[in-house]
């Protein structure tokens, strides 16, 4: 008799109920995270400009009560003896909450840059990656062009690429001369250079993932497409790529997750994204540990949202025989 039987618990019911709990917790966390970001963005760009509320970039809540509570807890620590350690932890936590309220507006604005930077770069990179991968696999004598591009971009550090673009003569000047750059909602030229850099860099990695998926589509698929009179390019477009992209989703998601995080390198060319803002605050307050912990949590929120979204996309586009297969959890 197993433990579960002895306790009168049906293990499958137990698994279901913990699954449900996990799902509910994820949904609640997701709503809280995106609720916070969306409210903040909306407020900063609309209501704050109309003079409503505390003002752009100012806290919604006051951190003062948390700061006072933390100070009180810390003050009582000495007298408490054996329970001093948990109380000490609690004090740190409450102190962290006060800090979180303080830095939340800056992190929310930074998150906007991070998300736009990532979304634009991954999408533009995809548009370069697909032809590059196709050229690599089907390009015949021109395959080396795709190979050279991929190896050059993959073989050099992203940070170096960003600096090269940032200091390319006339590129920044030319971008600055574009009237709308740096005006109103449109970010500064550094932001556009970062998008360019991440697009190029990401496209090389995406091309490799797509190449792998292209090669996993049976050669006979293209042969059959050509046998009914489609040209090679049409066959690739209508038969090979639709299968390839389904196969590529898991690996492509991996690249998306990487890009979310290495978009922090844009901070080095002065783009005020998440990492840049957090490090600026940390170096002026010396609260490195809690600020970078908060920063990590924001990245985690964005990454989990992205993987969740891509899992949905994967399920949505799956067809029998291609893509996500149910029932792998055998036994």
């Amino acid at each position: 008799m197993s433990v579960a039987d002895a306790l009168g618990i049906d293990p499958s019911r137990l698994r279901e109920s913990t699954d449900d709990l996990g799902r509910i917790a994820m949904v609640v966390a997701g709503i809280a995270f995106w609720g916070w970001l969306l409210t903040r963005w909306l407020y900063d760009w609309a209501f704050a400009r109309l003079g409503i509320g505390p003002g752009e970039g100012e806290n919604f809540l006051s951190p003062t009560p948390f700061e006072e509570a933390a100070a009180a807890l810390e003050g009582s620590v000495v007298a408490l003896g054996p329970v001093r350690i948990p109380v000490d932890w609690l004090a740190t936590l409450v102190d962290g909450a006060a800090l979180a309220i303080d830095v939340a507006p800056a992190l929310a604005t930074g998150a906007w840059y991070t998300i736009v930077l990532t979304a634009a770069s991954i999408a533009l990179g995809f548009c370069i990656a697909v032809p590059t991968a196709v050229l690599r696999v089907y390009g015949g004598p021109f395959r080396w062009v795709a190979l050279a591009y991929t190896e050059l971009i993959r073989g050099t550090p992203l940070l170096a690429q960003l600096f090269v673009l940032y200091y390319t003569p006339y590129l920044a000047l030319w971008l600055n001369d574009v009237d709308i750059v740096g005006q109103g909602f449109v970010p500064d030229y550094a932001f556009w250079i970062a998008i360019l850099g991440f697009t190029i860099n990401g496209s090389a990695y995406q091309a490799e993932y797509i190449r792998g998926a292209l090669e996993s589509v049976d050669e006979g698929q293209l042969t059959a497409a050509r046998a009914i009179g489609l040209s090679k390019l049409e066959g690739i477009r209508h038969v090979v790529l639709p299968q390839t992209l389904r196969y590529a989703i898991p690996a492509w998601t991996n690249e998306l997750v990487y890009l979310i995080k290495y978009s922090s390198l844009a901070g080095f060319i002065t783009v005020p994204e998440l990492y840049y803002r957090a490090s600026r605050i940390a170096s002026s307050t010396f609260e490195y540990m809690p600020i970078f912990t908060l920063l990590a949590l924001v990245y985690l929120g964005i990454v989990l949202s992205a993987t969740n979204l891509m899992a949905r996309v994967e399920r949505h586009v799956a067809v029998p025989g291609i893509g996500r297969v149910e029932g792998r959890q055998q036994g």
């Binding site: 049976d218 698929q221 059959a224 050509r226 009179g229 639709p242 299968q243 389904r246």
Partner: peptide, 21 residues
């Protein structure tokens, strides 16, 4: 044009090669 020729010649394969998607 091979594509034009192939429209007039149907082909059935050993490994079938239905478009999987």
């Amino acid at each position: 044009d091979p594509n034009a020729v192939r429209q007039q010649i149907g082909m059935v394969f050993q490994d079938i090669n239905l478009f999987a998607h």
